[in-house]
């Protein structure tokens, strides 16, 4: 079994703060991490490898420093790593990103593509399904469990929904987008960490994938960021430092004003 796992390097958004003066994102010192849902997907792939001896290839599209998460994937147990990096891919929206990744996937041999549900910097959950469409294979999103029947060559997948879950089956190629909350990713092994830096990360430019340049990067992106801004918080009301008794009076008065009681 050959598995292709898509991962992304993201800023740890829980560490991002807004500069109160300039109202811009403070990115300095914010750690860059492997996106949590992607790490969950990698764990599912490694579990399939443990049981069925799969070959796990990780791929990321990003800046040269994304090498770091590929090394982390090596240390967790991945076999091969590809870094798709090129100025021509810069500024890509989800459609252009999915075209590039699908282009890279077409150059590789795999049975299943595994990705995270969404990345914490954008939270779009679009690249996986769009990539599946370009590859002409089905997708299952919000994946919470993956089982494989070696004899029947059949995958059984649990997909979470708002009000429960679905059990889905398929044979043949597909793309899964996984939930970080469903699985506990393994730690990097000590031996793995040592070896991770001896292994080769393949560097691919846009010339390695068979996708027209007009469909890549900013040029190939149908959506454009018109503006970005930090949120204007609404005008706060009054703050009262009071004892519990007075607090109750103030709250009751407010609820009456709003016709709640």
């Amino acid at each position: 079994m050959k598995l292709l796992v898509c991962i992304k390097q993201v800023p740890d958004t829980t560490e991002i703060k807004i500069d109160p003066v300039t109202k811009t994102l403070v990115r300095d010192g914010v750690p860059a991490i492997m996106n949590p849902d992607d790490k969950g997907g990698l764990e599912f792939a490694l579990q399939l490898k443990d049981k069925f001896g799969a070959e796990v290839t990780v791929i990321t599209m990003g800046l040269p420093q994304a090498d770091l998460i590929l090394r982390e994937a090596f240390a967790m147990g991945a076999d091969k790593a590809i870094l798709l990096t090129d100025r021509k891919l810069g500024g890509a929206d989800t459609l252009a990103t999915s075209k590039a990744l699908a282009g890279a996937a077409r150059m590789l041999d795999w049975d299943l593509v595994i990705a995270g549900r969404q990345a914490i910097d954008g939270d779009t959950a679009q690249v996986g399904p769009e990539m599946a469409e370009h590859l002409g294979i089905p997708q299952i999103s919000y994946v919470a469990d993956v089982q494989y029947d070696d004899k029947a060559k059949k995958f059984t997948v649990k997909k979470e929904t708002e009000d429960g879950y679905q059990i889905l089956e398929f044979q043949g190629k597909a793309l899964l987008t996984c939930l970080a909350s469903a699985v506990k990713p393994r730690y990097m092994s000590v031996g793995g960490i040592v070896e991770a830096y001896d292994k080769e990360v393949e560097i691919w430019g846009a010339d390695r994938i068979d996708v027209p340049e007009t469909e890549l990067g900013l040029k190939g992106s149908p959506t454009k960021v018109f503006k970005s801004f930090t949120k204007e918080l609404k005008q706060p009301g009054q703050i009262h430092e009071v004892d519990a008794e007075e607090a109750v009076e103030l709250i009751v008065a407010k609820l009456k004003e709003k016709h709640i009681i």
């Binding site: 958004t13 829980t14 959506t223 454009k224 018109f226 930090t230 949120k231």
Partner: peptide, 16 residues
């Protein structure tokens, strides 16, 4: 919202 709600972005789709 983007970046975990830290930033808002207004997106348009001008040519499609």
């Amino acid at each position: 919202p983007a970046f975990g709600g830290n930033l808002m972005a207004t997106i348009m789709c001008p040519n499609h």
